[in-house]
Amino acid sequence: MQIVCLAGGTQNLYTVSTAKDFVPIWEQGWSDCSASRNEAPLGAAEQKALKTAGYDQPEDLDLLYERCVALSEDYEYSSSYDSFTPEEMAEISGALLLCPNHPAAKQVTAAIKKSKEDADLRAAKRLFGSGVYRVGEEVAPGTYAIEGDIANCYWERQDRNGEIIDNNFIGSAKRVQVTIRASDYAFTSDGCGEWRPA
């Protein structure tokens, strides 16, 4: 694998044959790199990486090797990062099989795990943000909470006639909790952030 990195008019060429060959690239902090794999037969790790990423063409390895190189754009995630898409989770998981010692591998693996958990909660209708939701169809009954710097949050529970069963406006708080009952018809949330099971 040949990797060409550019910065400020300077070009460097790296040859990567094992995961440890990425270290000099990571140490330089390159962010504009392109990868080009030769015609050698695929190794076991490369085959597994392609399968994990959901790719089937050997040339797709170039994308995965480029993911291994990236530091600033692809691998710096903070607590404010929302989540990976399923496609991003697959691609990055495949890339990490090629460069398991990436400096941010632990953070990225944790972010992928959280993204999968969030995807499962969304599918179960137990993770949601602002909007009006039909209870039992768009949001599951249960006790939910939001945490963080909450400001100007409004929620309400409604019956079948649109009458308010319970509501609250929170000007400022660190945590808000509400129980949505199976007998509720709808739940409305505005400006609260993302509700999660308590």
Score class of each variant (00 low, 15 high):
Leu61Ser: 08
Asp32Gly: 08
Leu96Met: 13
Gly131Thr: 08
Asn101Pro: 04
Gly162Met: 05
Asp21Leu: 06
Tyr55Glu: 14
Glu194Val: 09
Glu91His: 11
Ser130Ile: 00
Leu42Pro: 12
Ile146Cys: 09
Gly131Arg: 02
Tyr81Asp: 07
Ala123Ser: 09
Ala7Arg: 05
Leu61Ile: 05
Asp82Phe: 07
Ser83Gly: 11
Leu63Ala: 10
Arg126Val: 10
Ala173Asn: 12
Lys113Met: 04
Gly94Trp: 11
Pro103Tyr: 07
Leu121Phe: 12
Arg37Pro: 07
Pro141Gly: 01
Glu59Arg: 10
Thr188Pro: 03
Lys20Trp: 07
Cys153Gly: 07
Leu98His: 06
Gln2Trp: 12
Glu156Gln: 14
Asp56Val: 00
Ser172Val: 04
Trp30Phe: 10
Ala49His: 02
Gln47Met: 11
Ser31Met: 09
Ile3Cys: 13
Ser115Thr: 05
Glu76Met: 02
Leu121Cys: 06
Asp62Met: 01
Ile92Asn: 00
Asp166Gly: 04
Cys192His: 04
Cys5Ala: 10
Ser172Met: 04
Tyr144Ile: 01
Ala44Phe: 10
Leu6Ile: 08
Ile92His: 00
Ile112Phe: 13
Thr52Trp: 11
Phe84Gly: 07
Tyr81Ala: 07
Asp74Ile: 01
Leu63Asn: 12
Ala140Cys: 04
Val108Met: 13
Tyr55His: 11
Asp190Lys: 03
Tyr77Leu: 12
Ser34His: 12
Pro100Gln: 00
Trp155Tyr: 15
Ala105Tyr: 03
Ser72Tyr: 11
Tyr185Leu: 03
Leu61Met: 09
Thr143Ser: 06
Phe84His: 12
Ala45Lys: 14
Ser34Gly: 11
Pro58Thr: 01
Ala53Phe: 08
Ser183Asp: 14
Ser36Arg: 14
Glu66Ile: 03
Thr188Cys: 02
Ala186His: 04
Cys68Ser: 00
Ala173His: 09
Ile180Tyr: 13
Tyr144Val: 00
Ser83Ala: 15
Gly9Asn: 06
Ser183Trp: 10
Glu27His: 13
Tyr144Arg: 01
Phe187Arg: 01
Glu147Trp: 10
Ala7Glu: 15
Ile170Ala: 07
Ile164His: 10
Arg157Glu: 00
Leu97Val: 05
Gln2Ser: 15
Tyr133Leu: 02
Ala44Trp: 08
Cys5Arg: 01
Trp26Cys: 05
Pro86His: 08
Ala19Thr: 00
Gly142Thr: 00
Ser79Leu: 10
Gly171Gln: 08
Gln107Pro: 05
Leu42Lys: 12
Gln177Ser: 14
Thr143Phe: 08
Asn161Glu: 10
Glu117Leu: 14
Ile150Thr: 08
Cys5Thr: 05
Ala90Thr: 02
Lys20Gln: 14
Ser130Met: 03
Ala7Thr: 08
Ala19Gln: 02
Leu127Val: 04
Ser189Phe: 07
Arg181Asn: 13
Pro58Ile: 00
Lys114Met: 09
Leu98Arg: 01
Arg196Cys: 08
Ala40Ile: 07
Tyr133Phe: 15
